[in-house]
Design a protein around this nucleic acid. Structure first.
Lengths: 204, 204
DNA sequence: GGTGGCGGATGACAGATGTCATACCCCGCA
DNA sequence: TGCGGGGTATGACATCTGTCATCCGCCACC
């Protein structure tokens, strides 16, 4: 290699972020040149630090790592994108790929895969857990419409129909209709199970 | 110091666990002598490795870090216990302290606090985030009875009253009574909010 | 120019959920 | 000995939820 790989690390939990930085710091050919704790700080940091690879956690304040990936992909198409997540949800994998990610890693994979993935994406390879890829393909696309997702998201904290109607500027009946169709599409029996099911698939 | 501090690391996500190990490995006076990924492997590892400090994540398969802490405290009272968690829930802090923990850290604290906490507990100090401690004291004790908690836990996935009754060997009416009292104690308006509220406080 | 999907709405109905009063048993504590 | 709290149960009642049929407007696609 001619020079070190310049990595940006985006992860909201400082302890985990700095620990990952320590881990990557052990590699001779990798240098963590920037760290951010929020999704909406990713683009600026990429612009400021001549980054080769951006390592993005999905669950972050500001915006998700997937949204951040999409923005980086749009503005800096040469930057390679590694998406890292706690939850191996097939829907996440799908959205990450659509956002232009080059690698998708779950945090309970062995640590060695992290540096390996960084090197592979830089070499033009894609890195995806085959099991997860199979699951993402098997499960098919998200059947929920945008409105159904909105209502489900809003219902996730236990709000009543009246509150949902007010918050979303809909009639109570319409709220119930959306929830009802979502419940049917997800093949569950009530809104709580629907929220759970949609979350698990990464469809929320 | 006469010798290095021998640390056990318990955390289920390999990547995070090994990253934390790398982080601690940078300290001259600290040595990670064992790593486990499950709560129920903690006690055995402590027995096998002459551990000075056990660093325990709360959310783990097998058993929680808090339960593991209680067991270690019972069988190896000289081992210092640092509880590490993603969620700064006051109820968690309370239970961790009751289980005999010497330190309570949240993962979004700066990484430097980790090694610092390890050294402090070994020196006999206790390490607790003052904000969290205040919150834990302000909130008071868990008002839910054991049965109410059981029912709430079981209701968390969206099960219906009939299913809860069957699963817990109760009548449907009793299930509804427990949920009703829980809802009142938590000052919320339905089971979903009750689950959410109890979770947030660390009471579930 | 018709068809179908999505967003939005209404009304009716059945079933689930939340509340309340009441009752019984058991246990610990005064 | 009595009282209170927890665990369990029942029945009645009001409200909330989920389903279904039906309707309207808009837009895309054949």
């Amino acid at each position: 290699m001619t020079s070190t790989i310049r990595v940006l690390l985006a992860e909201d939990q400082s302890m985990v972020r700095e620990a990952l930085a320590a881990l990557l710091g052990l590699e001779d050919d990798i240098e963590v040149v920037a760290q951010v704790a929020r999704g909406d700080e990713v683009l600026g940091a990429v612009a400021a630090h001549d980054v080769d690879v951006a390592l993005l956690d999905i669950e972050m304040p500001g915006c998700t790592g997937i949204e951040a990936a999409a923005r980086v992909h749009r503005d800096f198409p040469r930057v390679k994108l590694v998406v890292l997540t706690t939850f191996g949800r097939p829907g996440y994998l799908r959205s990450a790929m659509e956002a232009g990610a080059d690698a998708f890693l779950v945090k309970d994979a062995p640590a060695a895969q992290l540096a390996a993935a960084v090197r592979k994406v830089l070499a033009g390879e894609r890195v995806i857990d085959p099991t997860l890829a199979a699951a993402a393909l098997a499960e098919g696309a998200n059947p929920l419409t945008e409105r159904e997702r909105e209502v489900l998201r809003a219902a996730a904290d236990g709000s009543t129909n009246a509150e949902l109607a007010k918050a979303l500027h809909l009639s109570q009946g319409t709220v119930r209709n959306y929830l009802s169709t979502a419940i049917q599409k997800l093949a569950v029996r009530n809104r709580a199970e629907a929220v759970r099911a949609a979350r698990e698939k990464g469809w929320l």
